[in-house]
């Protein structure tokens, strides 16, 4: 079975490229059994969302709130 080190690498790579069918299947199986990697996977998306917010100048001053607060036209 795939270990956590391999699984987390794939979870990060999934942000960059399409994983092969084989990798996806092995990963799915691993993540089903491993809560740590399951959390890690979710955090990859969160990290990306956080970074995008940061790059929008988000802060408490009328924090940038994504879609409802975009250009208003």
């Amino acid at each position: 079975m795939m270990n956590c080190q391999q699984a987390t690498r794939l979870l990060s790579d999934a942000q960059e490229r399409e994983l092969s069918l084989k990798d996806r299947a092995a990963l799915k199986f691993h993540v089903m059994m491993c809560s740590g990697c399951r959390n890690f996977g979710k955090q990859m998306d969160t990290l990306s969302d956080i970074a995008h917010n940061y790059a929008k100048g988000s802060d408490s001053d009328g924090a940038v709130q994504r879609s409802d607060d975009e250009r208003h036209e």
Partner: peptide, 20 residues
């Protein structure tokens, strides 16, 4: 290659609340 017990990622509750 498996997580050390104390390094295993935890669930983050409502992470996107933090951006404010």
């Amino acid at each position: 290659g498996f997580w050390q017990v104390d390094e295993r990622p935890a669930a983050w509750s409502h992470p996107m609340k933090s951006v404010k």
